[in-house]
């Protein structure tokens, strides 16, 4: 008997995964992606399985993407946005999860503002837990869909030079991508104003505060969202200066490889971290990312809920 390709019960983050596990998710996503191009986009893989999407933070892409993935795989799913739930009445995360669990779902997909929230549920609940973003910790399915996008366009991840640029300090996307790309043999450079570069991260990847240095010779540039609140929080003086010094402009894109890919997890702030010409330009794969998001989430659902039985 060989070990399963993805041997974990949960998907809490990229950090604990091995390269082969990541490979398994990406290969599965690649195989399942084809379903999305069929006239009837439905397979019975997860019939009879119940998935709860529990979202404590606003989300368009991630939530819609999970919901579509669940429907395509024929899982029964429901989504709970905390703005319309008992959370408004002061119910704790654990009580909410325990109550949902009393209805016997097979999986809970959790988005929460507290780092470690998914670990917390995994410790106290029976269901499989998928982390759909926890605080500034991890957003594993985002990193997986970014990797899928890169792999489709470049044919590989190993050896790619990738710049991750923007608010690294507050970004779970940056952390998950850093773990994933490093594990898969890509060379990552992190770029942010020093106030938005988390302490100690230089032990994991080279860092710079000059965007020109970060993007030079890059195969891919991943831009991170800059939240308006960071300016009032005193991390940088003005959005204008941010764009002038750290924004991705066409001129700066020209420093990268000719076939550079531009990624952004969304939602974008045009004219802040990314110029509109770049976001809408020929090297932008931002909408591919969204399509791949569905495929990657189908793969995660399948591997956690159906894969073991099917194999």
């Amino acid at each position: 008997m060989t070990a399963p390709a993805y041997p974990h019960r949960h998907l809490l983050g990229i950090e604990p995964l091995e390269a082969s596990h990541i490979q398994a998710v990406l290969d599965t996503a690649e195989a399942l992606r084809e379903v999305l191009d069929r006239p009837i986009k439905k397979v019975p893989a997860l019939r009879g399985k119940t998935v709860v999407n529990l979202f404590y933070e606003a989300s368009t892409r991630t939530r819609a993407s999970f919901e579509i993935a669940e429907k395509v795989l024929s899982a029964d799913s429901l989504s709970i946005a905390t703005s319309t739930s008992s959370v408004q009445k002061g119910e704790t995360l654990l009580d909410t999860a325990k109550n949902l669990e009393a209805m016997n779902p097979d999986m809970i997909v959790l988005r929460h503002s507290a780092s470690g929230a998914a670990h917390f549920l995994a410790r106290h609940c029976r269901s499989a837990i998928v982390n759909a973003g926890d605080g500034a910790h991890e957003h594993p399915t985002q990193a997986l869909l970014d990797a899928l996008t890169l792999r489709q366009r470049k044919g590989r991840l190993e050896g790619l030079r990738v710049a991750i640029v923007g608010d690294v300090l507050h970004s779970r996307v940056a952390r998950s991508n850093l773990w994933l790309l490093t594990k898969m043999g890509a060379k990552v450079t992190l770029c942010a104003p020093p106030t938005l570069m988390p302490p100690g991260i230089e032990t994991l990847a080279p860092t710079t505060s000059r965007i020109e240095e970060a993007v030079e010779g890059a195969d891919a540039i991943m831009m991170l969202r800059i939240q308006q609140e960071r300016m009032t929080g005193g991390y940088f003086p003005t959005l204008r200066e941010y764009h002038a010094r750290f924004g991705l402009t066409e001129e700066r894109v020209r420093l990268a490889k000719k076939d550079v890919l531009i990624l952004h997890p969304g939602p974008m702030n045009r004219g802040v971290e990314i110029a509109s010409e770049v976001a809408d330009g020929p090297y932008s794969v931002i909408l591919d990312q969204v399509t791949n998001g569905v495929a990657v989430r189908m793969a995660v659902l399948y591997l956690l809920l159906g894969g073991a039985e099917a194999a």
């Binding site: 950090e15 780092s115 926890d134 779970r172 302490p199 100690g200 994991l204």
Partner: peptide
Amino acid sequence: NEGAVATMLGLRGAP
């Protein structure tokens, strides 16, 4: 505590 561990965990640290 602020440092590499807090950074990996995505928790805000006090230096």
